[in-house]
Structure formats: C-alpha cells, structure tokens
Amino acid sequence: MTRRSWIGWQFVAPFLAVFALVFLAPIAYSAYLSLYRTKLIGGTSFVGAQNYTKALHDPQFWSAVGRVSLFLIVQVPIMLLLALLIALAIDSGRLYGAAFFRISIFLPYAVPAVVATLMWGFMYGSQFGLIRNLNEWFGVTLPDPLAPNLVLAAIGNITTWEFVGYNMIILYAALRVVDPSLYEAAAIDGAGQFRIIRAIKLPALRGPLLITTMFSIIGSFQLFTEPVVLRTIAPNAILTYFTPNYYAWQLSVGGQQFNYSATVAVVMGLLTMLVAYLVQARAVRKAV
C-alpha cells in the first residue's frame, strides 16, 4: 500500500518541485521580508507587523488601491459587455465574414502590452501624435488623453482594446458547445432571437462570464505595464503610486525599500483574493 502511494508522489513530484520553487517560495520569502526593515543608516532589524500597520495607514497605497478599484468598476463591465455582444453577434450566424471578425478582434491580444501601449502612446500625443493631427485637420482642440484627469480612461481604452478579443473567445467557445437542438426546439416553440439569447445563451454563459470576471478583477488589480510605459510620455499624470503594483515596484527600485515593497505586495495579494472570493461566493449563491 505504502509503495503505491509513493508512486503517485513521484509522478507529481516534478510539478510540485517547480510549483514550490517559483510560486510558494517567492510568496513565503515576501512574507518573511515584510517582517523586517533595512535602513541606509542602521542596517536591518526585525519589526514584526510594523510594515503592515504602516501600509494600512499609507495614503499613497490607498490612493493606488482606489484608482484600480475605479478602473475595475468602470473598465471591466464595459469590456465584458462588449465581449458579450461581439460573441453573441458572431455566434448568431447572421454576420457576414464571421471568421475574419473573430480573428481581427482577437488579434490585439497577440500584441505584447508594451508594444500596444507604445502604439497608443503615439496616437495619444498632442504634440506629435494623432491627437495633434486631428486637431489640425478639423481645427479643434481635443482634450489631452494624457492629462492627469483622463489618463486612467486612456489606459482603460488600451486594456479594453487588448482584452475584448480574449474574453470574446472564451464566451464564444462556450456558446459553441450549446446543443443546436435546443435552438431548433426553441424556434419550433416560436421563440425569437432575443428570447433565445435570454433563455438559452445567457444561462449557458454564466460560468464563462464568472471566469472572465475573475480574470479581469485580477488583471485590474495587477495593472502595471501600461502605466509604466506611458509614464515616459506623461511623467506628471502617472504618479509613482499610480497602481498598487507600480507602487510596490517604485518602492523597491526607486527607494530600495524592499521590505515595505514586499508588505505592499502581500497586502495587495490578500486584497485581490478577498475581492475575487466575494465575487465568486455571490455568483455561486445566485446560481443555487
């Protein structure tokens, strides 16, 4: 009996080793780091939960959390709604060139985030970019998308462009596995397209929508690449504590505060888990 159980462990051992090395170890090490403080003058000392107390009262950290929360509340519903509409349109079978549509909407997902942001950055430029050209062609003065009050929306636009296709593919794949005989039965019963969407397609999408919502929540809280790249052309609109990840990064690379940076990362990880859990719990309760 013991022999058999060991064979099982041997099969999963390679996975467990890699999992422990690249996943558990960094988390444990971050947690360990967060209990210490290193000063330029005075060296390293154990400070217990002090870094956590500091994080809970750190206005810069909470401003970053507030910003990604706003981003989450506004950008994620817009993106998922768009993805849903496109998936339904492609699945309806009434769209000419559906395959082309599907690929071209998915394509931005294949563009690396850095490249996508650089590209949009050029378009957003009011000195040398597309905005300047538009202003000149039409004799107008468009608001600067890289101004402090608009830059979050500008980033939302970039991420929507990047991820609509990705979410659309997940939803579309779920629609493809619906048994066509259900549609035939509904048609025989005299149901129109919108009735079919409401009674058959949307219920079939409940699971995939939950998954895409989860991915999007995590993605929003981890917002990092786009602000970092845009900061070179909008240094005054994107602060060093623009998003929690940006803040953690700045703390370690700009300020050499590795311990506090680890604390911020741990707190943000817990917060993300909490929000994801609440959303899932709510979705499951509704489903029952």
Partner: peptide
C-alpha cells in the same frame, strides 16, 4: 496582457528571492 502581467509579478517575486544573498549587512 493578463498573462504577461502575472508573469511580470512572478518575475518580481523571483527577483525578491534573489535579493536574499545581499541582505543582512
């Protein structure tokens, strides 16, 4: 990219691991 972001975070976590050697002075 969602995946890239996650990978970037992992990378950051790994580089934190590497810092171990230099601490303690």
């Amino acid at each position: 990219m969602r995946m890239t972001r996650r990978r970037a975070l992992l990378g950051a976590a790994m580089s934190l691991t590497l810092l171990a050697a230099g601490c303690g002075s």
